[in-house]
Design a protein around this nucleic acid. Structure first.
Length: 452
DNA sequence: TTCGACTTGGT
DNA sequence: CCAAGTCGA
């Protein structure tokens, strides 16, 4: 009997381009493929509601794919560190492998685990899988982390190119004795009473297989029209963000596909699309070096900002799309219904909360965390801080989106707004909850205080 | 130290 | 036309 290898999966729910999986299989021993639902480890953020829905289906699909290759997915709940030790003890595993995660809490837990495993004589190894450029490898000339996107991405692109994606193993040998696993249904990741996931089901198919399909469709059909990406009524974005968040697809696979055959028109848009992938890299870079991106202002000067404290009723108008500002409401309803919001509209809806209502960006960030299927520990707070002006490479304070002007520019014929707010222009649609011109002036005044 | 450059804007 | 600040080389 060979001692098995434990593969601990986290944000890498895929078989292709999975270095830790490949290493586990190549070791020649049976592989215990483990996923841990961890709501308890300090600094590891529990998934929000929409993400839990996605996770359920992604794990189901992964389990099926694994089974077709002879493997078996083992599910456990609790502290990741504790569970891994438990599984090692139960199986007599000699090796544990995983792909690196980059959040503060995740790194701390993994470093501690590596140390304690080695102290128990268990070999532990981590792999580079989920970012094109690991955060500590990109530095300014002065050896410091970047705080501005453009030079950061230039440094990435001008350095050694990302490796080619790795193949999926054809066979994943499971241990002869089955390892105890939770039943996925018992985790109750799907909503009941009420089941609010109907819009999610209509719009998404979680899992590696559909992620690959979306990438291929984007590369062959959609990328050529990516120049229209700012218009929310068009469907010209990749919609890969939730799959990237769960690691159903890797940035290496995306990068590589963008360097394969593309039409001339698509080729012209490639750099723009890859720079959006670059923003994901940038936010992870910033988060790696920041204190805690989801709670602490990158620009500490904002710590004294006098945010308003909104009532539940006011906040609910924003959350559920009843602000009386059509583009904001359209976006918030798209989010509530589908677990997703077009990027341009995210900026407008976030700007409205932070600048027109002067609500702390953390309040909006938490709502997005709970409702987005692509909620990401670095991207979500990083983008909210960017909008608020407290973040890295943030817009100047006096840049305040006007949601009406944004609608005129990017939804000129009102198609997107009508799709989500059909009653717009009728007596059923609410009056604006705030005067845009006055609240803009108030915001400029409030932000003026920060400058001192 | 200097200096060019800087995702996404508004009136 | 307006509106700074600061990053990075």
């Amino acid at each position: 009997m060979t001692a098995p290898t434990v593969l601990w999966l986290r944000h890498d729910l895929r078989l292709a381009d999975n270095p830790a999986l490949l290493a586990a299989v190549d070791a020649g021993a049976p592989v215990v493929v483990l996923y841990v639902l961890d709501d308890v480890t300090p600094g590891v953020r529990p998934l929000g509601g929409a993400s839990r829905w996605w996770l359920h289906h992604s794990l189901t699909e992964l389990g099926d794919r694994l089974a077709r290759r002879g493997g078996r997915l083992v599910l456990r709940r609790g502290s990741g560190t504790h569970v891994v030790h438990e599984v090692v003890a139960q199986t007599g595993a000699s090796t544990v492998v995983w792909n690196r995660r980059y959040s503060q809490g995740g790194r701390a837990a993994d470093a501690g685990l590596k140390e304690s495993l080695r102290a128990h004589g268990v070999h532990a190894e981590s792999f580079h899988a989920n970012l094109l450029f690991e955060p500590w490898t990109i530095q300014t000339g002065a050896g410091k982390p970047y705080q501005v996107f453009t030079p950061f991405w230039r440094a990435c692109v001008n350095g050694p190119p990302p490796r080619d994606p790795l193949p999926a193993p054809k066979h994943v040998p499971a241990p002869a004795d089955p390892v105890a696993s939770d039943r996925l249904d018992d985790w109750e990741l799907l909503p009941t009473r009420p089941d609010w996931a109907g819009g999610l089901r209509e719009n998404w198919t979680p899992g590696e297989r559909d992620a690959r399909r979306r990438l291929e469709e984007f590369a062959t059909d959609t990328l050529a029209a990516y120049g229209l990406r700012d218009e929310p009524a068009r469907e010209v974005t990749s919609r890969l963000s939730p799959s990237l968040a769960f690691g159903e697809i890797s940035p290496f696979q995306i990068w590589h596909r963008m360097h394969e055959a593309l039409s001339t028109a698509a080729h012209q848009q490639r750099g723009k699309f890859l720079s959006e992938v670059g923003w994901r890299e940038f936010h992870h870079h910033v988060a790696f070096h920041a204190e805690d991106l989801a709670t602490v202002n990158v620009r500490r000067r904002f710590d004294d900002f006098g945010w308003e404290t909104p009532g539940d009723e006011e906040l609910d108008r924003w959350r559920y799309g009843r602000t009386g500002i059509p583009l904001v409401d359209a976006g918030m309803r798209e989010l509530w219904h589908t677990g997703y919001m077009h990027n341009r509209v995210r900026m407008v809806a976030a700007s409205f909360l932070v600048k027109n209502l002067l609500v702390d960006w953390r309040v909006g960030e938490q709502w997005f965390w709970d409702t987005l299927v692509d909620a990401d520990e670095a991207n979500n707070p990083g983008n909210w801080q960017w909008v608020a002006g407290s973040g890295a490479d943030a817009a100047p304070y006096f840049r305040i989106f006007n949601p009406r002007a944004q609608a005129d520019r990017f939804d000129r014929d009102g198609e997107y707004v009508r799709r989500w707010v059909p009653e717009v222009g009728t007596g059923d649609y609410p009056e604006p909850m705030v005067d845009l011109a006055q609240s803009r002036r108030d915001a400029l005044e409030a932000y003026e205080q920060i400058r001192r």
